[in-house]
Design a protein around this nucleic acid. Structure first.
Lengths: 332, 332
DNA sequence: CTGTTAGCGCCTTCAA
DNA sequence: TTGAAGGCGCTAACAG
């Protein structure tokens, strides 16, 4: 647990000033070949690496991109893969940060994380499903699955409306007429669009909208439990459910099973996202795929562009229905 | 892109000194109730959050745990989930860092990352499959799937030997006699143990070891390609392959398919890890499961203990054979 | 070519 | 109860 060597240790060992060491390390000129070699030798010997913290405090740039999340859940992790891969051959390192929300923080985790890391530790940030549209950011920002629609910061998202419509229309094509919706985090544009897609598909099929068939899921397993029960408690219970994401779809299935319903025989369920769990689940989940790694990569591209003086962009990527085993034709 | 508010901004706005703001924020006493309220009001108004960088530079602790990885691949991501979950109800935030290896860095990414973040940004570190046993660390460390065996830093790993033996014995039980091994990163203890388990199983069945049936995979997709080809190039080619991890198992299957071999009909393949891809792959992968989230949680437990003055521990978790579709009986 | 100085944002003595 | 001063490790002026 001995202290890491600092630039001062290097300077003392090499018998030169701290400034000279700094110059040597950073390849500035104004250092003789002999001194340079000597200093670098000491650096290697001591195993010195400059402190990211001190450097970033002094310098503007750190060459680190931050991926800010509320929580490391599958959705964020898949994005992270894409981000990481896209940053592979750039000089940037990736730093993923999950900030716990302090109790009385009204501004949300993204504000806190941004404020704590931005301007110092990270050169730019990718926000995953932020709960708010960050204003006054100190670094360039790209939001994935943003709070608001295309305005303000740069955004990357899928065509949620089309995806949701496709999912619902697929259930309709299977003969279902009582179709429930376990909706997502209503503060996110994605959840709103998915509900809208659901409604539009119903309307297109001439089915009147029944408010009782929509319950809150909040995109999270824990949050979906009550909603799942609620949907199954409806007198004329739905024969199919379009859940706003895979996590809540999986919870929907779990709750249904708990109540003795078989999926897909007694209840069809469609999710959204296509996280890895979707295909490893039993039964495998019919879902709407978001190209998560590609979305992460797109966010990187935009962010690097912005760091280079470019304009914020708004990218929409396609969503694709993936039919698997959690859906079946409605047997009246 | 306006600058984030600093403590100085708060002080100026509130009409007090920086020191007073600091005390107010950190709940130190020596601040009158009136001043406290006023200052906190300004803090809220300005949306001020202390800079993690500046704070960590000045203070020792940051309440941030670092998960240091070479790359965000599935193995690391699954661990990250466990770490994140385990840290949920603690005051610690999680910071995952993937440091790119600078060209001529002999000491490895973990040294660099540790040196750059340790002692300043993070209070403790969890190292994922480090390439070297870090000495002289400035913060408590737990290594997952460590370089060396149980000595030095705290470690978390599975019983690789048993897992590998179980995998190989399963292939033997299916009637296979020519069994290849696509081995892992030979610098890691896990890869060595897995090869040993493979050999012991063969020996136990009275099958002489054939060096031609062992090829290097290096745990990575790209690294496994050549090894996969090599195994299939052997005159009397293996009818089954035990790959040292899932990523190389999947690559093994891809290469086999490319050469017109069907899995599992013509070639059985077993992996190791049970990353999400294992079950979503077609065919689903027979593999040896590592309880990755649990391992991440165990690392957290140990690390928090060490931060609390506890001793380093060495935890071994069980590995379990999961039989799926990539293996079949050998039809002579 | 080298060293001295100042200061990034923050917290902690120590004085007033 | 408050504020002034120093310093964490580092880099960018500037001076020698």
């Amino acid at each position: 647990m001995n202290r890491r060597p600092t630039i001062t240790d290097v300077a003392r060992t090499a018998g030169v000033s701290v400034a000279t060491v700094s110059k040597a390390i950073n390849g500035r000129d104004g250092v003789s070949a002999a001194t340079l070699e000597h200093v670098l030798g000491v650096v290697a010997e001591l195993g010195y690496e400059s402190s990211l913290v001190a450097t970033s405090m002094r310098r503007g740039r750190t060459n680190v991109i931050g991926v800010l999340v509320a929580e490391f859940e599958p959705f964020a992790l898949e994005l992270l893969r894409g981000v990481s891969t896209a940053l592979q051959d750039t000089p940037y390192d990736v730093l993923a940060y999950a900030g716990t929300v302090s109790a009385g923080d009204h501004l949300g985790w993204e504000h806190r994380s941004l404020s704590r890391l931005g301007g110092t530790l990270i050169d730019g940030a990718i926000l995953v499903t932020p709960t708010t549209a960050p204003t006054r950011a100190s670094v360039p920002i790209v939001a994935i699955d943003p709070h608001t629609g295309p305005d303000g910061p740069a955004t990357v998202s899928v065509v949620n409306l089309d995806g949701a419509r496709a999912a619902t229309e697929y259930l309709l094509s299977l003969g279902h007429r009582r179709i429930g919706h376990l909706r997502g985090r209503t503060d996110l544009e994605s959840a709103q669009q998915r509900e809208r897609g659901y409604r539009e598909a119903l309307a297109g099929a001439g089915i009147p909208f029944d408010p009782a068939l929509v319950a809150d899921g909040g995109y999270r397993t824990a949050g979906a439990t009550a909603g799942a029960h609620a949907l199954l408690d409806v007198a004329d219970r739905p024969t199919a459910v379009f859940a706003a994401n895979d996590l809540s779809a999986i919870e929907m299935i779990r709750v249904a099973s708990e109540r003795g319903l078989r999926v897909p025989e007694d209840l069809s369920v469609v999710g959204f996202d296509d996280i890895p769990e979707a295909s490893s689940h039993a039964p495998q989940l019919t879902t709407v795929r978001q190209p998560l790694p590609a979305m992460g990569a797109a966010a990187v591209r935009i962010l690097l562009g912005m760091l280079d003086g470019g304009e914020p962009e708004h990218v929409r990527m396609p969503a694709e229905l993936i039919v698997r085993g959690s859906t079946a034709t409605f047997a009246a």
